[in-house]
């Protein structure tokens, strides 16, 4: 059955797209559509006009001065396979290969994953630990905003009406011996929405102390969160048993999970602690 929209417009350039989004009432951009098509069908999101981004050149991973820029229309499959991403942001590559199943990964875009603003979005925790920023465009110009400030709640972001995600910027990762992980927990191995997910990244010094520690989690709060208290506690410490235990305790104040049909809050707290502990154990090795 058709999804309930009245019009599709197909801009050829970004500027055209921005004008259409600004001028068409009740319009929404559509790229891969893997979330939006279901939401339109179910009435969870609605639109009169879809602005189809297919004709725009928004896909691709490009090296820039300070890191890379991943175009908003880059698919999860392309990210998961990209050699540079796999080498320097392995948690992101790992997460991209766990978004839905392969046919979803071949269609779903990074920009769509962000715009959808699910608390459980798998690509987000790895981007948070990469200190990613989002480049937004509108007819009045562009702005770049830290990803950590991008989400407002389930399904909502700070984007103004008519604003479009153009790209995600990943600054070059810090040098040194880096441990980086992404793990998600669900009741089956593939094609599952995370009950809890965690991305961790730390530089391990020769003396075993951790620096520039970054931990982010999905599905444990209304938005994906950085575990700032945990990070502060770990800075400069060795992840021994006592430190790990304290980190697990502090983590509980960084997250605010709820009971929902996918998991009870208590499980999410415990599983988040386990994932953090395992990440730190990996840093300890």
């Amino acid at each position: 059955m058709d999804v309930p929209v009245q019009r599709v417009v197909r801009p050829r350039t970004l500027d055209e797209a921005l004008v259409m989004l600004a001028e068409q009432p009740r319009s929404r951009p559509i790229a891969g559509g893997t979330d939006l098509m279901v939401q339109l069908r179910d009435g969870r999101r609605s639109a009169d006009t879809l602005v189809d981004l297919d004709g725009l050149d928004l896909a691709g991973v490009h090296e820039v001065d300070l890191g890379v820029e991943i175009g908003a229309a880059t698919t999860m499959d392309a990210i998961a396979r990209h050699p540079l991403v796999r080498r320097r942001w392995p948690a992101l590559a790992e997460a991209a290969a766990l978004v839905g199943a392969w046919p979803i990964q071949c269609r779903a875009t990074l920009g769509g994953n962000l715009a959808n603003a699910s608390p459980a979005a798998d690509a987000v925790p790895p981007l948070l630990v990469a200190d990613a920023a989002v480049r937004l465009a509108s007819p009045s110009g562009e702005r770049t905003i830290a990803l950590e400030r991008f989400f407002r709640g389930p399904g909502t972001t700070v984007m103004a009406p008519g604003e479009l995600i153009v790209a995600v910027l990943l600054p070059a990762p810090s040098a040194g011996r880096v441990v980086e992980r992404f793990v998600k927990v669900g009741p089956r191995r593939e094609q599952i929405i995370s009950m809890v997910s965690l991305a961790g990244r730390a530089v391990v010094s020769a003396d075993g102390t951790l620096h520039d520690v970054r931990v982010a989690l999905g599905a444990v709060a209304p938005i994906p969160v950085r575990a700032r208290r945990v990070e502060a506690h770990l800075e400069g410490r060795r992840p021994d048993a006592a430190t790990r235990r304290e980190a697990a305790a502090r983590l509980q104040a960084d997250i605010a999970p709820i009971d929902d049909l996918r998991a009870p809050a208590a499980y999410r707290r415990i599983a988040a602690a386990v994932l953090l502990d395992r990440f730190l154990e990996a840093c300890h090795g």
């Binding site: 559509g33 098509m37 279901v38 879809l50 499959d77 046919p103 071949c106 269609r107």
Partner: peptide, 29 residues
């Protein structure tokens, strides 16, 4: 399923597998 969850509607779009229930026909131009 009509929601991209079961894969029965999988087709190749430019050689890549996609669930055609989630693809807007207009985007296939």
């Amino acid at each position: 399923c009509g929601a991209g969850e079961c894969g029965a509607c999988t087709v190749l779009l430019d050689g890549k597998p996609v669930t055609s229930c989630l693809v807007l026909a207009a985007s296939c131009d």
